[in-house]
């Protein structure tokens, strides 16, 4: 086993993010099972559904590259959805909601970052606790019932198309490109890479480790707020359950995309395909008649499988 893993071909293959393989396998499965579903219109709809997940993945991959994790996305999405749909701000315009959402995400992200970077609390605990607090508060405020409607403009924007590509998908691709540029071209991107590779070495080389971690979390909060806006546009109503499973899916997609705590081999496009894998996976599972419990199992198996894939690789010299 070790000898096979050490060969140059195997090591080259292990360098490619698993999401590309999984994507091809799922595409082939779908092509065999339902060839007529593989047209641009139908795929466009399926891909549009996972845009909130795809956006959340962008934040997740930034924090995972600094060896942290953000599971508070579910709470942020729920809170922003509540703000928009509850009617607490009567007559508010769309720009107001956008600014409110971004500010909310930024504040929560900064709080996460402060607790993790400054207080050095376990990131899983902080972000899970923040999520629980937000979910509990929203459910209390709405007394367990879904709040009201969302301003029509949100859903209208969500349904537009540009050159027969749904606008949300286009927006997602643009945002992914922006994050890709941020990580590859800016000083912040370099800091993120060096903190993830070795925080101690980065510290002694003059990299502001703590500030980088805090900023990464603030960015993740901001991106979660954007995901919340898109998610709210897609369901067009208030909900007390929306987006609760997204953070864990985002972690799965990011790991699948080759970004594992501190190691960023998959770049930004690996996780992008990781999110696409989930779009296809849900289609394939629906086609094969597998329902919600099966999806939970698939999520777990994918995270564990991808993590083992990397764990084994790190062991080989």
């Amino acid at each position: 086993m070790a000898a096979v893993l050490a060969s140059p071909i195997a090591r080259g293959l292990l360098r490619i993010p698993p999401s590309y393989f999984v994507f091809i396998v799922l595409l082939a499965t779908l092509w065999i099972a339902r060839p007529n579903m593989l047209n641009l219109n139908i795929m466009g709809i399926f891909i549009r559904q996972i845009v909130p997940l795809g956006i959340l993945v962008l934040g997740q991959l930034v924090v995972m590259r600094v060896k942290s994790i953000d599971l508070s996305g579910g709470g942020i999405i729920l809170l922003i959805n509540y703000f928009i749909s509850s009617g607490s701000f009567p007559g508010a315009s769309m720009p107001f909601f956008v600014v409110l959402a971004l500010a909310t995400g930024l504040v929560i992200g900064l709080f996460n970052g402060f607790m993790i970077g400054n207080r050095r609390v376990s990131a899983v605990i902080v972000t899970l606790a923040v999520s629980i607090i937000l979910v509990g508060l929203v459910q209390f405020l709405s007394s367990g019932n879904p709040p009201g409607d969302v301003p029509k403009l949100f859903n209208d924007l969500y349904n537009t198309k540009f050159l027969s590509v749904p606008t949300p998908v286009l927006f997602w691709i643009l945002l992914t490109a922006a994050v890709s540029l941020l990580l590859s071209q800016t000083v912040f991107g370099r800091y993120v890479a060096s903190v993830g590779e070795n925080a101690e070495a980065a510290h002694f080389s003059g990299v502001p480790v703590q500030r980088t971690v805090i900023l990464a979390h603030a960015l993740a909060g901001l991106i979660a707020a954007i995901a919340a806006l898109v998610q709210t546009g897609s369901i067009a109503v208030g909900s007390v359950r929306v987006g609760l499973d997204l953070p864990i899916l985002a972690v799965a997609a990011t790991i699948l995309g080759g970004v594992v705590f501190g190691r960023g081999d998959g770049g930004v496009w690996g996780p992008f395909f990781g999110a696409l894998c989930f779009a296809l996976l849900f289609v394939v599972m629906t086609v094969l008649g597998i329902d919600e419990p099966g999806k939970l199992i698939a999520q777990g198996v994918i995270i564990l499988g991808a993590a083992i894939f990397y764990g084994v690789r790190v062991r080989t010299p």
Binding site: V66, K67, S68, I69, M115, I116, G117, R119, R120, V121, S122, A123, V124, I125, V126, L128, A129, V130, S131, I132, I133, L134, V135, G136, L137, Q139, F140, S143, G144, A199, V209, Q210, V213, F261
Partner: peptide, 28 residues
């Protein structure tokens, strides 16, 4: 106290007790 608020309070306690611990490692 509403069960939803109870959940939120439990989350707050978790955050507080774990936040008061100090450790060397940052991140996960």
């Amino acid at each position: 106290v509403s069960p939803f608020v109870q959940t939120a309070i439990k989350g707050g306690i978790l955050l507080a007790v774990v936040g008061l611990q100090s450790r060397k490692k940052m991140g996960l």
